[in-house]
Amino acid sequence: MRKLAFAAALLLALQSSAAAKLRVVATVPELADITRRIGGDHVTVDGLAKGTEDIHQIVMKPSFVSKLNRADAIVLIGLSVEHAFLPGLLDVARNPAMRPDPDTLNCAGPGCIDCSAGIRVLNKPQSLSRAQGDLHAQGNPHYNIGPDSGPRIARNIEAGLARLDPAHAADYEKNLKTYLAELEPKLAEWRKWVAPLKGLKAVSYHNDMAYLGDFTGLEFIDTVELKPGIPPTPTHLASLVKRMKELKVAIIVREQQFDMKLPSWLADQTGAKVAVVATMANALPGTDTFVKFSEANLRSLLKAAGKEPQ
């Protein structure tokens, strides 16, 4: 009887400990990774995307609805990059802390931790028309692929967690400092690595390399896609080959989720080398953290350029 009472008390204690933790859902694996690092023992983190998908076509699984319904916070990239799944899921998740924002297609409410706050957004469109493809109205949202976005993302997550759980704000701040102390030397090291890439010309499959280009100095001159989200036409490919030859494009970035066929064909036509790049952590083997994902992308670009990390 005494043993039973002890077991029940233990179970209750464990439950209350679990209940005390902030339940966080992150839309993509790299945000889940950074949230775990900042949140430490005070949070439980669930991810939605696996990492291997195209972020524009992540499937709305009803199991995601259950996760969001019970979450205290959602950590998102924002800038409407999660438009394919997040507004639809938030609409039915019945969580008053996080509602879909019809204006921005992001998240509105106290539970939303939007990591794009303070990001210097690139490629803001001058005008909006579907004739320009599947544009993101707020600008290029793929800043998570830029290694130097890491500190800003981490700071936003720390600010969000501290706002929602002020009792542990000091711990979140301490964890942030620890994380940045690891990340910032890495960034300095990576900047040295990518020095040989500066000025080299490249094309990517989708228009998602702006921030990686900004960090590496690679000049992305065009995309395999005709327009954002619009698969290429034969005319576009013919003109792209001509342009790549004229501009001596050295690297073709094939984002992991796209088929290899077209980048390989382009490489055959132009002599450029293909670099396989992940658009989310976990897209490639052994890249389950923001640091590993960023590093793998840089190594892939360097390899395609025939360089070694220095």
Binding site: G51, E53, D54, Q257
Partner: peptide
């Protein structure tokens, strides 16, 4: 029933 592979699901 849905088969929506996380890897290669674009195609």
């Amino acid at each position: 029933y849905r088969w929506q592979p996380a890897s290669g699901g674009l195609y």
